[in-house]
Amino acid sequence: MADVPDMDSIDLRVVLSARGLRRDFGGFVAVNDVDLDVHHARIHALIGPNGAGKTTVFNLLTKFLEPTSGRIELLGHDITRMPPAAVARMGLARSFQISAIFPHLTVLDNVRVALQRPGGLSTQFWRPLSALDRLTPRADELLDAVGLTDVRNKLAVDLSYGRKRVLEIATTLALDPKVLLLDEPMAGMGHEDVGTISDLIRSVARGRAVLMVEHNLSVVADLSDWITVMQRGKVLATGDYPTVAADERVKVAYMGMEEG
């Protein structure tokens, strides 16, 4: 964009890191000794065949699951034993595989719920709903940025699949997170929506770290600065797209070919 490099875009500090992450379900090791570094202002894709443990890693990083062992740091703080809501308040926001919206609230209210937390506006049970009106301009700004202004008064449940996804991202952005974890943002998306969401993710990543699980490899190739490939609960390879794509083990994992 500009000739002078933006400080944010060249700042590649690690904002979220995991060391030796492991999670057992009974006797089954879903995630085994995973190391992961997520950098500021970088789109990092987590890929791998079905059952590789990508979503489990997501749930561990966001603390929706407790790790069996290992250590997670967010912005230099140890969050390994923190509850998920506290981690969210520190600036780690996530989306879900199935669009996480509040179906019977309006689109505007969906975003305002996210804006409500700071300033104690979420515990006031004695004030009328109009107390939330001062959040409306910011909510409208966010809806405008993702192109949902025309449906702001509709119930979220009435939106199309793609627009629910967009609403979910807008709600997540309302938190102004430092790290954004997107679980299969393109899942079930029509061709025309993929472009919209890609642009949205790219613009969002300018000021923050993005980690996403994604199956659509052309999207991954197009969007990601960095890729981690997982298989059977372990990290198989990590690097930029050409490095990973050239990796023999990755080819085998994806094509299901025997070595040799």
Binding site: A85, F102, L105
Partner: peptide
């Protein structure tokens, strides 16, 4: 109401 609608989402928003 948001908790009733989608509890996990409310958690992920920091509540």
């Amino acid at each position: 109401r948001s908790i009733r609608e989608n509890e996990n989402r409310a958690v992920s928003l920091g509540y």
